[in-house]
């Protein structure tokens, strides 16, 4: 699913249980990160759960490639949304993306307000910092 499909799907669901269930399902579809890639430097600081994130450019050194994992199902689902947002973008396109706005549009921001619990803020900040470093 691309980000638009995810958005449409989440918007069509009413009630928090259904939304979280869907988020968790998105997480299940995200491939697990091999243990070898769960390195300390990939660990996103500021999350209460463990979040590992790798961000790089593809083999043509053009587009963003992100892989990530978490030990909690819901955060992994949120990672799936974040990855669908940023993957395959050109760095300058990624700079224009406002991931918060996206979460807001999906009606998630009320529950996912910047907190250490879900770490959304820390994850997005980390991506932004790394994208900026590419230019």
């Amino acid at each position: 699913m691309d980000i638009t499909q995810i958005q449409n799907r989440l918007n069509s669901l009413s009630g928090w249980q259904a939304k979280y269930r869907e988020i968790m399902m998105l997480g299940k579809k995200l491939p697990a990160l091999p243990e070898a890639l769960k390195t300390p430097d990939a660990l996103v600081q500021g999350c209460e759960s463990n979040v590992w994130l790798h961000l790089d450019l593809d083999e043509n050194q053009e587009r963003l490639v992100l892989i990530a994992d978490s030990d909690t199902r819901i955060v992994k689902g949120l990672l799936a949304i974040i990855l669908a947002t940023y993957n395959n973008l050109l760095p300058h396109e990624a700079k224009e993306v406002d991931a918060y706005e996206l979460f807001e549009e999906m009606g998630l921001i009320k529950h996912l307000s910047p907190s250490r619990g879900n770490g959304v803020k820390a994850i997005i900040e980390r991506i932004k910092a790394q994208v900026n470093a590419f230019q």
Partner: peptide, 21 residues
């Protein structure tokens, strides 16, 4: 082996306020 955060987050959707961590 379920993560406490997942359980607490789902419980919250039922109006059940618990602490996790």
């Amino acid at each position: 082996d379920e993560h406490h955060f997942d359980i607490a987050t789902f419980l919250n959707t039922y109006g059940v306020a618990v602490r996790s961590g």
